[in-house]
Amino acid sequence: MTLQWTAVALFLYGEIVVSLILCIPFISAQRWRLVFNWRIWNWLSPYWNRCFFTMIMVLIVLFLDALREVRKYSGPEPMQDANLNPNLYDHVLMKLFRAQRNLYLSGFSLFLWLIMRRIVTLLNQAAVTLESSDGLQAQIDNAVKAAKQHQEDNLKLKHALLEEENSTSSKNQQVRLEVEELAGQLKTADEAVHKSHAEVEAMKRQAKGLAQEYDRLLTEHHQLQNLQSAEDKKDQ
């Protein structure tokens, strides 16, 4: 294996290890977000896109080269020459095997390189989504608590209004009873006043009759005195 394909193989093995680490289930996306926010990554972030696209171009070139080698050694002409010479046949098969191996190495390296970038992006998005969901959950909990508090306040207000209405109705009933009682007392007083007026009128009439009787008796008394004085004068 040449140096470049040895490097591609090591790169592929490293990608496999990193992908397995990123896929560990008990490491949450938020922890990975903390790791991705280290200062070293912030320092490397300006060069990350260049490195990423450079590796893609290198792997694509190696993949196309390996594909060319596979098509070269799997064509009809090398196989026809190999059928004439058994040693050449083994050499062609060895070249074909190496070309296919290189094709797989470069292809899987390119595939895993894209998958790793996608995994990192999804982990960051998942962490942001979890943080947003936590914030939304906190807002929802606060809103639910506020709604429950408002509901309790409304119930208390309703109870207070009902109690006030009941107390007002009882007060109105009491006032109505007092008004009816006062009306009865007023009616009784009016009847007593009318009765008093009637008694006064009767007493006035009785007093008038007594006065007339007194005048009549006084007149008769004067008449009797006049008669008596007249008889006394005759006797003298």
Results as ranks from 00 to 15, higher is better:
Gln228His: 11
Asp235Ser: 12
Gln225Met: 08
Thr54Phe: 12
Ser133Val: 01
His194Thr: 13
Thr219Ala: 05
Ala147Lys: 14
Tyr214Asp: 08
Trp5Glu: 04
Ser106Tyr: 01
Arg176Phe: 07
Gln30Tyr: 07
Ala143Arg: 10
Ser45His: 08
Arg205Ile: 00
Ile56Thr: 05
Lys156Ile: 02
Asn37Met: 03
Ser196Pro: 01
Asn166Ala: 15
Phe11Asn: 01
Ala198Thr: 07
Gln149Asn: 10
Leu177Cys: 04
Asn42Arg: 12
Lys195Pro: 02
Ser170Ala: 13
Val70Ser: 05
Leu10Glu: 14
Leu34Ala: 12
Arg50Lys: 14
Ser28Glu: 11
Val18Lys: 07
Arg98Ala: 04
Asp81Asn: 05
Asp190Tyr: 06
Leu20Ser: 07
Ile40Ala: 07
Leu110Trp: 00
Leu122Ile: 08
Ile21Asn: 04
Leu161Glu: 06
Leu59Met: 01
Leu22Pro: 00
Arg118Gln: 07
Ser109Gly: 06
Arg50Thr: 11
Ser132Pro: 00
Gln225Gly: 00
Arg33Asn: 07
Asn172Phe: 12
Phe111Asn: 09
Thr219Trp: 05
Glu131Leu: 10
Ala143Trp: 10
Met1Gly: 15
Leu161Ala: 10
Ser19Pro: 00
Arg205Trp: 02
Asn124Phe: 04
Pro78Gly: 02
Ile56Ser: 03
Ala146Trp: 07
Glu181Cys: 06
Trp41Lys: 10
Trp43Asp: 01
Val200Ser: 01
Leu210Cys: 04
Thr54Tyr: 06
Trp32Phe: 12
Trp38Glu: 00
Val179Phe: 11
Gln80Lys: 06
Leu123Met: 10
Gln137Ala: 15
Ser106Ala: 15
Met116His: 11
Leu186Phe: 05
Thr129Gln: 15
Gln100Arg: 15
Glu163Asn: 12
Ile115Cys: 09
Lys187Trp: 08
Leu62Arg: 09
Gly209Lys: 13
Lys234Gln: 06
Asn37Phe: 03
Ser106Met: 01
Asn37Ser: 08
Lys145Met: 07
Asp235Val: 14
Val179Thr: 09
Tyr73Ser: 01
Gln100Ile: 06
Ala147Asn: 11
Trp41Pro: 02
Glu191His: 11
Gly14Trp: 13
